[in-house]
Design a protein around this nucleic acid. Structure first.
Lengths: 339, 339
DNA sequence: TCGCTCGATGAAAGCGCTTACATGACGACT
DNA sequence: AGTCGTCATGTAAGCGCTTTCATCGAGCGA
């Protein structure tokens, strides 16, 4: 069992000092061409690759970015994360990933873990969390970028979209179809500013049309097809069922859609259903799901660039708002005559 | 700007040596109760947390596990990964994640990156890759666990399922419905043993029924709803269209389903369609998709335990086969009379 | 009481790399 | 010729932790 080669081995072999080898690896332009070639040859010959711990210790950075998402179960975050990861790789960074199962306590633990693991920066979803966590991050000088929301009033930079405005736009489209009895199936709004903003968007759009936002029925439930279906069942068996159900995301909406079918309700003739996210599945549903399309790829890519910049320069960039676009598909139709 | 506290600060404060503090952190039972309490108090007071780089350098491990999946775009890998990540956290490990976009060259680059980033072990999807990569990993003494397949004949341990057998089972179910003109929409089989095994499974089942496997029409295409739809269009406009289309995964199948609907074909009356993976979307499709259910969660959780064990003890565990189960849903029906 | 063992702790040597600073060679300018 | 700046490289001091080995008492059997 021979030892793994070190910088010193390379230096010896190339007949230079370790400093030169280090420079050759980190800033090749600062060493003469001839020397560089000699070093590169030595590296190749003995199969050297730098020791991560030593590098991290000496350089005080790991070139590693942490991200904590609520879940990977559905493709809601997976797509943005994919773009984020790809973007990081392009910047020479690596992704440390954790998930919180939508639980603030687990998220807090993960934040601490990732920082302890040497994450140079952190991507978090949504602004809302215990201020102590932000203090902790400030103490450790770990820059944070918040994604999936855009809120310039928050002290931290974010990259995402205006959940409230997007949902208001969708609601306006629903109202334009003549619907007046609306219901919303939402994720839990506690600890979750995205879901809360979306519900607020529905209410805002109603108010803008002179409707009383208090008449909106809201069911909160964990994200999931099954839970969406159950919520739908509750809504439609109530005394005055809504004519349109605005769901907080596509997964809930697909559950609602399935449930409607199971109850013999036609969509959109008997009830309209809308989603949020535009996961690729929404086009496969029957009828295809009307939803709000979110720029996952753009958001992930931008996040990678912004966060890398923050880590490297310490800069505090401006928040970036990305546009959402309405996809008005078959699951949204005019209000039924009888209603 | 005060410096972040170090082990030495804790030691000074607690009136002990750094060695004792280190022991207290890593093997608390080896230091006397009273001393331990003093140290713990000091840690809390000055808000100490260990430096990752230093620890990695001195201990020669990072408690970090790397994983490289082909993509996060769809939920095929996301669900297993979610379980894997959760399992790792339970073992005190952290996940370094990369994706390869199904490209062997990118995967190779990612493998090198993750090793350079100090991954103690690696989770890879499928066995097939350049042997030089396995040499590289052996050289760096990084244990590898292969997931999403089960193949005890390979030299490396794997945790997953027998893709060929599972697909053969599904095909047998299709044949049992009287279908004889079959087609398969598959992911690319080059560099991908999973897809290849699945196609082989279809052929094996045909042979078992005395059919000529050569009569199977196979279309290879990248994974995606659109590509699945296009493949379906090609299949159904050919001279002798199949009566059943067996897809290599759910995403392709959902694309095929959508295309069938677009072409005015009824499923399963005119054509049957089956998938593979049992993503949660398959129950939402109309008709619900017949598919092979894969134990994502179990696989991810087992992988986390096995790989942690490999890293900690250097053991080479036996491969683990997990059972798949057929979900025969509405998209599979009897062969049409006219066919 | 003596000699031992054993458990708790300390001293100190790295782990492999980065980087501030020192050195020396070489031109260019005065 | 003397001075200075520049560039390529070397020297060496850490970075903060783990771990080996040594030390020191206390407890214990003879």
């Amino acid at each position: 069992m021979t030892k793994t080669p070190t910088l010193a081995d390379v230096a010896r072999r190339a007949g230079v000092s370790t400093a030169t080898v280090s420079r050759c690896l980190n800033a090749p332009e600062r060493v003469q061409r001839e020397t560089r070639e000699r070093i590169e040859a030595a590296v190749a010959e003995i199969g050297y690759s730098p020791n991560f711990g030593a590098r991290a210790l000496a350089a005080k950075r790991t070139d590693t970015i942490g991200a904590i998402v609520p879940t990977l179960e559905n493709s809601v975050f997976a797509r943005g994360l994919q773009a984020f990861q790809t973007g990081l790789v392009a910047q020479g960074m690596t992704l440390l990933l954790a998930s919180s199962a939508y639980r603030p306590d687990l998220e807090a633990a993960q934040i601490r873990t990732l920082v302890a693991r040497g994450a140079d920066g952190l991507l978090l979803i949504g602004h809302e969390r215990d201020p102590a966590l932000y203090d902790f991050l400030a103490l450790h000088r770990v820059p944070v970028l918040v994604a999936w929301v855009y809120d310039p009033s928050e002290p931290r930079p974010s990259v995402g979209f205006d959940n409230k405005a997007a949902m208001a736009e969708m609601t306006a489209a629903v109202l334009a179809q003549g619907h007046r009895r609306l219901a919303t199936i939402s994720g839990h709004t506690r600890f979750n500013d995205r879901t809360r903003d979306r519900v607020a968007g529905v209410r805002a759009a109603m108010a803008a049309q002179g409707l009383d936002p208090a008449t909106l029925t809201v069911i909160e439930t964990p994200y999931g097809i099954e839970t969406g279906a159950r919520a739908m069942a509750d809504l439609m068996t109530a005394p005055h069922p809504p004519t349109a159900v605005i769901c907080g995301n596509d997964v809930l909406a697909l559950g609602a859609l399935r449930q409607a079918r199971a109850m013999g309700l036609r969509v959109p003739e008997d009830v309209s259903i809308t989603g949020f996210d535009d996961t690729e599945l929404s086009t496969v549903a029957d009828p295809p799901l009307a939803t709000v399309s979110i720029p996952h790829g753009e958001m992930g890519a931008r996040a990678a660039i912004m966060l890398t910049e923050m880590v490297r320069t310490g800069a505090q960039p401006d928040s970036v708002a990305l546009p959402c676009v309405l996809r008005l598909r078959g699951s949204l139709g005019p209000v039924p005559r009888a209603a």
